[in-house]
Design a protein around this nucleic acid. Structure first.
Lengths: 338, 338
DNA sequence: TGATTACCTGTGCACGTTCACAGGCTGTGA
DNA sequence: TCACAGCCTGTGAACGTGCACAGGTAATCA
């Protein structure tokens, strides 16, 4: 008897049918829901599946159904952003687990260079995935245009600027979060509150600035606003600019924890104490925030819930449901920095 | 004329053949290398492909070839490790890009819980991926046993303990790196050098400790050794233990940057200056190291080269080549902490 | 009794591709 | 003139699955 793994052919639905004494069709029915199958037949098939170690061939299945049983996790951010910010890892892992529970898989697609973007458009357009989880979109992204045009089910993390009504989205309430942070800083007696924004072509950059502005009202002063790109370096540079321009500031709201980390470094180097001289607030509550010195007061984003909701919504859209825009509450997390 | 994207059927190889005035076989030959095809036929086919916007159906192709044209990125670490350590993101992105260049895709597989491990074993065993990129293996991992048993091409990051000769691996020279760090600390005049190790069932945990021990020689003293699990929390706890046990230490080598970050926090809290009172060295040179305060002296792992090499080796193994063990040089990066 | 219904099962076809094979054409050497 | 090789092309058969359909049985109803 030859039972070596290498020599044995992978069992097909025919082998199962033969072992169970039924036809291919019956086996197929048992696998896909099992309606209209007699209890005896079902049990025989289930035994045969266990005995043969049968596992459906996904390629054959996809060929006939036109479904790939997988979603794409589409990454459009430039490389350097991923080196220090754990945000994306958390989303990625959450999405992978949510899919694995449903017997689906996650395909990682990187669209950094124009060439990669073209490949991604082709790949997705060819129907190799059922839908796309879009991470951190920039305004007027032509890739997103392509997805919309080709009718690819898409759900974005954060409201995609310029495409808000064309694709689904799951996001934290950016404005409310920013307002909560500013309100908190004010409640601590801070009066000259600066901000380091994210890129203004991203929802996080634009909406957190709007929240900051709305909460400040008449107290809003452009001199206290600088723009960053979410990196620690840009946070440091922004902090330097702010201190040169407005040395009297007594608080800073950075639109990401990573930029807050950069700002903290500059403050320390300049001999300013946190929070005594300058209070610092961040946004994201990524793993980073709690490990900074001092631990960072920030706005919590429920990344695990966001990824789970993105997957759920995308699968609904794939199934024919209309897309929607879900907003999750942003919660202030008080630590030592403010 | 109906040219709406929704109404138009995706072009198949038959459409291309018809448009080019040749047969399916000729089109297939042009796509796959193009040998034994006349220049005129090839040109006609290429024009037809461009005109129809044809893209091969991967499922149909995989069904007949038995190749999936994809690799799995297999994650076995528990969840919490990914929140702060960017190491895995860098490897993941590098692998995805290396594959995308070859027209292949990367599938993310998570094997945290026993249930997930079973699913992964089934999925991979069913031939849904051509090979597995194994990240951070633990000694005597039964999942790795399964992969080996089923003859799945596998390449690990770091020499897999207990399976060193059964699967391929790409790793940094852990021992040399640890020795370089200890040698550097000694050259700075440090004499009581402690270490916080990684988990001893991982190659990084075991081999970096061996390097530390080898470099210290007779000066090795167990009192200066504590064990962590790569997290910042374990680094902090380890530092506390060390200071309680051996308050006279003048240097610490943490087996990961994240643990070093935890150690830095404890040192600061206890009023010890870095590097004046205690020098601190890390390992990995992940994005984290440069942003710490003070910036961390550490051992650089060339993660981009590692991921590229893992992909290259795995594809060789898939193609029938024997697996091997590639070691990359570990380089000391001097910053302010030591 | 005959018609209708509800349930269960098996069979043929299609999905889009690659591969093996057969065969055509052209040129070369015996 | 025939055999043979080298190049190029087309065709049929697979790959493993889901789905539509036909057909069977048993129970219910007019």
């Amino acid at each position: 008897m030859d039972t070596t793994a290498a020599a044995r052919r992978r069992p097909t639905i025919r082998d199962v049918a033969a072992a169970a004494g039924v036809s291919r069709g019956t086996v197929s029915r048992v696998i896909n829901g099992g309606h209209w199958v007699s209890p005896e037949a079902r049990e025989a098939v289930e035994r045969a599946i266990a005995a043969t170690g049968y596992r459906a061939n996904q390629h054959a299945r996809s060929l006939v159904t036109g479904r790939s049983n997988s979603l794409a996790f589409l990454l459009t951010e430039p490389h350097h952003l991923l080196f220090a910010d754990p945000t994306f890892s958390i989303l990625l892992r959450g999405a992978a687990e949510a899919l694995s529970e449903r017997g689906m898989t996650l395909i990682l697609l990187v669209a950094g260079t124009p060439e990669e973007r073209e490949n991604v458009a082709q790949y997705v357009g060819a129907g190799h995935v059922d839908g796309v989880l879009l991470i951190s979109s920039h305004a007027d992204d032509p890739l997103l245009d392509t997805l919309v045009e080709q009718g690819i089910p898409t759900v974005a993390c954060g409201i995609p600027l310029g495409h808000a009504d064309q694709v689904g989205s799951v996001s934290v309430d950016e404005q409310a979060g920013a307002r909560a942070m500013v309100a908190h800083l004010r409640s601590q007696g801070r009066r000259r509150i600066a901000t380091i924004t994210g890129p203004l072509d991203t929802p996080g950059g634009r909406l957190r600035l709007e929240g900051y502005r709305a909460e400040l009202g008449d107290a809003y002063d452009e001199r206290y606003v600088v723009h960053g790109d979410y990196t620690a370096e840009s946070g440091a540079a922004g902090m330097d600019t702010l201190l040169d321009r407005a040395p009297d500031l007594d608080a800073v709201f950075a639109a990401s924890d990573l930029m807050a980390a950069g700002a903290l470094g500059v403050l320390r180097r300049r001999g300013l104490r946190v929070p005594e001289d300058v209070a610092v607030g961040g946004f994201d509550d990524s793993g980073l925030a709690a490990t900074l010195d001092p631990p960072l007061t920030t706005i919590h984003q429920p990344f695990d819930r966001i990824s789970a909701e993105m997957v759920a919504m995308l699968l609904d859209v794939v199934g024919g449901a209309p897309h929607s825009a879900v907003t999750m509450p942003a919660e202030l997390v008080r630590r030592a920095s403010a």
